[in-house]
Write a protein that binds this DNA or RNA. Structure first.
Lengths: 216, 216
DNA sequence: TAAATCCTGTAGTGCTTACTACAGGGTATA
DNA sequence: TATACCCTGTAGTAAGCACTACAGGATTTA
């Protein structure tokens, strides 16, 4: 049981953190291949041997970047936990989208690198891509549960795939808006678009619900 | 005036096409930095000197890949030309999204590389990224005009930014769905999600229109 | 047939890449 | 103080990178 005040341990963790931070910044700017160990050592101030001692390989370093950035990002975003009964759907959606958007603005590394990795398709898949996909699947599950809680029982019964599809559309649109804001930061009214997305999702859920009740 | 039957010219254009094709495939799989001239020569069968004779640099080659892929892709996708009067909005949206989706499936290189470039943000911007952004801006303009034609005059008058914002949301969601399908090809009901997106856009336009008429 | 042009094949350039061997300083334990 | 361990700094490695010089074959023009 090493005590947490161990100066050696502290120093080691601080180095690890600095390397991760540098790698996160660079990989968000330049993607997987564009991130070189030399750049990481320059920005972190630590030599290549330290990078390899801590992480073993560039592939594993970037996988840890994804994992670490995600854990830093998590508490900043809205939780898709099932809502209190009586919550207003549009208001909740708008707030959740805004909160997620703000967390991207503060900490853009996680999504940028992740989406770049998602678009790639090389013969041997980078470990970082696998981790990002797993994390996304978890996020999607949480969003699906939230949507299921938000839709009336009768709607879920007659459209069993609807909650998950709304969650997928929700996530896809949020990703697309994020990408658009990266490509054209000043041209875009992010708040207005998030509001519009919230409205659209609510409106389509409403329309389908009305169809269900109308048909019965 | 060189005749088109010039065997030398034919041969040259064939080589150019083969290099572009190889570069398009590789860059869609691996991104900007992941695409090496050596890989392109291997897949195209032509030596590096030919690549440089035809394109001058890797940067210019990839910019031409974007341009060329776009021109190949254009006729396969739905035109966002202003519709005939009386067109059903949901039906049109659904068909347009489906057609675009199918064209991606056939010819995925254009969007893959473009979106990867869009996410990057290095100090000196690749020429390919600039071209892709310009092409996207054109696409967005066309979609905005279509939406403007689709909304009632009163709505456009009271919400002057709405057509463009609907076009942006439309494009962002389509991009996001495409990205999702790349990351998880078999998990996803693309047709269903495109249908849902078309419904959502139509529903939100409807709701806003009703607000306008209700307030008057 | 001679000259001009176009494109390819060969063989490089200097630089960057991911990764490693290893010695040694700093710190904790005995 | 002696020993064991952890991490860093130095100095490499071979392979890959974008790019180039240049000779020469193929084809068209004079």
């Amino acid at each position: 049981m090493a005590p947490k005040t161990d100066r050696r341990t502290q120093h080691s963790e601080e180095s690890r953190r600095r390397i991760l931070q540098a790698a996160a910044e660079i990989s968000a700017e330049r993607g997987y291949d564009g991130t070189s160990v030399a750049l990481v050592t320059k920005r972190s101030g630590l030599p290549a041997s330290s990078v390899y001692w801590h992480f073993g390989s560039k592939d594993e370093l970037l996988a840890e970047v994804v994992e670490h950035s995600y854990r830093q990002w998590l508490p900043r975003k809205a939780r898709w936990a099932p809502p209190e009964p009586g919550t207003d759907r549009v208001a909740y959606l708008r707030d959740a989208l805004r909160q997620a958007g703000a967390s991207f603005a503060d900490q853009p590394e996680f999504m940028r690198l992740g989406l770049m990795l998602l678009l790639e398709r090389r013969a041997e898949e980078p470990a970082a891509r696998v981790r990002f996909k797993r994390i996304r699947a978890e996020m999607l599950d949480a969003m699906s549960e939230w949507w299921e809680a938000m839709l009336p029982e009768e709607v879920n019964a007659s459209h069993p795939h609807l909650p998950r599809m709304l969650a997928q559309l929700n996530m896809a649109a949020a990703d697309g808006l994020y990408m658009m804001s990266v490509g054209d930061p000043e041209e875009i009214d992010m708040n207005g678009l998030q509001e519009l997305l919230a409205l659209a999702l609510d409106a389509v859920a409403d329309r389908i619900a009305r169809q269900v009740y109308g048909e019965e």
